[in-house]
């Protein structure tokens, strides 16, 4: 029997099993990227070789056309177009989503009214219905409205899965900070615009950034709705990759595109770690 004091000291310490679990999960998460990177650098890599028999850089001098990364970075791969589309749609969706959700989140976060719980459930509902159901049902309407296969259509449809996250995050931000500071400012004679930009916004900014990051993340990673509504005309990184792997095989250019499609996420991960950690996505 260990003394209570030493037990209490251990409360924040990790035990060996937990250490093993963390390590195993890190390996499970990261290890599959190794063959992906190798594949992207391979020219011929057949079973049972652990490494390619011919690498891309050995073959590239002999090859009459760009191979692997040379192709990925050539205009023919459409990677640049897909990247611009992905980022452009992501940013537009994020801004739209913010404009729609910010006012609503203030109401949800700071006011009490009848039916508020039901309303919050309604906002979460798009997360709870299968994406395929939403996508196919909407495709019908969008074809009728001539929105299928257009940027506008894709951006609108991206709002459905992103709004719940944005609304949720912003609501919890408003809940957290109360109305005292605004009340003071109002007493001191600030007008509504001044209050919002000088008082409210700086206070809620970290939360707003977190919400925007989630929204951007969800939008850039969205495949199904882009694929259904974009009808193949709007190429984003996830749909470009899908076209490469839908056959159930991955060649060097496919692996290269998969790595490129991971880059925005990795950048976000590095630079935004602290914002994302403090806000739960679901609740």
């Amino acid at each position: 029997m260990i003394g209570t004091a030493s037990k209490l000291r251990d409360i924040k310490a990790i035990n060996p099993w937990q250490r093993l679990l963390v390590l195993a999960m890190a390996v499970f998460t990261i290890a599959p990227f190794a063959p992906l990177i190798i594949q992207s650098l391979a020219f011929r890599w057949a079973w049972p070789n652990i490494l390619p028999t011919v690498w891309w850089f050995e073959q590239r001098q002999r090859s009459p056309f760009p191979l692997a990364w040379d192709y990925v970075f050539s205009p023919s791969s459409r990677v640049v177009e897909a990247t611009i589309n992905t980022l452009g749609i992501g940013i537009t969706v994020t801004l739209l989503c913010l404009v729609i959700c910010l006012p609503a989140a203030r109401v949800l976060g700071q006011r009490t009214f009848r039916g508020k719980n039901q309303l919050e459930f309604l906002i979460a509902l798009p997360l709870l219905l299968p994406e395929a159901a939403i996508g196919i049902a909407l495709l019908m309407i969008f074809i009728a409205l001539d929105l299928a296969g257009t940027y506008v259509g894709v951006i609108i449809v991206h709002l459905i899965p992103t709004i719940p996250y944005m609304a949720r995050t912003l609501t919890s931000v408003y809940q957290g900070h109360g109305t005292d500071a605004e009340d003071h400012a109002r007493v001191l004679g600030a007008n509504r615009r001044q209050i919002f930009f000088r008082v409210t916004l700086p206070m809620i900014l970290p939360g707003v950034i977190a919400g925007c990051l989630f929204t951007f993340l969800v939008s850039t990673n969205l495949f199904l709705l882009t694929f259904f509504i974009g009808q193949g005309h709007i190429v984003t990184l996830p749909t470009l990759l899908f076209a490469k792997i839908s056959g159930g095989a991955l060649d060097a250019t496919g692996a290269g595109i998969a790595l490129i499609a991971s880059v925005p996420g990795v950048i976000l991960l590095i630079f935004t770690d602290r914002f994302i950690r403090n806000y739960p996505l679901a609740e």
Binding site: A46, S246, G247, A249
Partner: peptide
Amino acid sequence: YPENSDELDNLFLNSE
């Protein structure tokens, strides 16, 4: 039955 020629090529490459 592979869905398309990419998948078949991959089976062929790997001696499946």
